[in-house]
Nucleic acid binder design. Structure first.
Length: 262
DNA sequence: CATCGATGTTGAG
DNA sequence: TCAACCTCGATGG
């Protein structure tokens, strides 16, 4: 159940432990019927873009999207324990084993299809942005839209990698009302949101935890203390003491503080 | 033990 | 707009 930082961590794991190696690819569950196409080939590299992970096997790509249920489990050998659950795809190289369970997408695609996905997806705050063009793509897209900013942040073609937790937390940190249309948000504010996304996602990659509170202390790792507003409906806002609200926006739960986020 | 819900997306209507 | 997809840990009785 990842947002972009988790997927980036998976890519890092594959680049560290599998890249450049002949990799066994199987489907213990049997539902990944194309596993044989990749079996015993070199896993060239892993690329994360938003919530999608692409494992390149020379000229072929395995596109993986965990969706809401999917999960990775990694093990180091020489002894591998049998993990619980239905394993869609299993990867083994040397002493490393990775099991993929419950993904929405696990499909082999070619280079053209890979390029199509790159084009379709919006800018990923975790990608290097030396000339600021990724930030520009986000700002210019959001500032033209009459869609609420709370929905724009969940749109993977606007910004890739933000999910329901970061959406709520970023808007709280920006003091921005989620219902405000994108074209009513100032350019300065949009740049601030992009910069905060970069900061938060990087910290998430580094720590493996979604830290969003003021001092980023890991002391706020316990579930009750972790977030500013996410899943805190009916509780006191940590800043103003008002009540945290909840509503459905595009059928996803949205959390915000009505007085901090006017 | 049964039920619920989740950091997500697609596609039918 | 909403059901369907798909898995399993958390929750409650």
């Amino acid at each position: 159940m990842p947002e972009g930082h988790t997927v980036a961590r998976s890519a890092n794991h594959f680049n560290k432990n599998f890249a450049g190696q002949i990799t066994l690819v199987t489907s213990p569950q049997g539902r990944f019927t194309d596993s044989a196409l990749l079996d015993k080939r070199e896993l060239s590299e892993a690329i994360s873009l938003g919530k999608q992970l692409f494992l390149r096997f020379q000229e072929d790509y395995l596109r993986i999207h965990l969706g809401i249920y999917g999960k990775w489990s990694h093990q180091s050998g020489p002894i591998f324990s049998e993990p619980v659950g239905q394993v869609r795809a299993r990867f083994i190289a040397g002493q490393q084993l990775s099991d993929l369970r419950g993904p929405t997408i696990c499909e082999v695609i070619d280079q053209d299809q890979f390029r199509a996905h790159l084009i379709r997806l919006g800018p990923d705050p975790l990608w290097p942005d030396f000339d600021g063009s990724l930030q520009d793509r986000f700002v210019s897209r959001a500032i033209k839209s009459s869609t609420p900013i709370g929905q724009l942040l969940m749109d993977q073609s606007v910004i890739a990698g933000i999910g329901n937790v970061y959406r709520a937390e970023i808007l709280f940190r920006a003091g921005l009302n989620p219902f405000l249309a994108g074209n009513k948000v100032s350019e300065t504010k949009l740049i601030e949101i992009w910069a905060d996304s970069v900061q938060l996602l990087r910290l998430g990659v580094e720590t493996g935890v979604m830290l969003t509170r003021e001092n980023f202390q890991k002391l706020s790792v316990s579930k009750e203390d972790r977030y500013q507003v996410y899943k805190r409906e009916g509780l006191e806002c940590r800043v103003c003491g008002g009540v945290v609200s909840i509503a459905l926006m595009a059928s996803r739960k949205l959390y915000w503080c009505g007085s901090c986020q006017k």
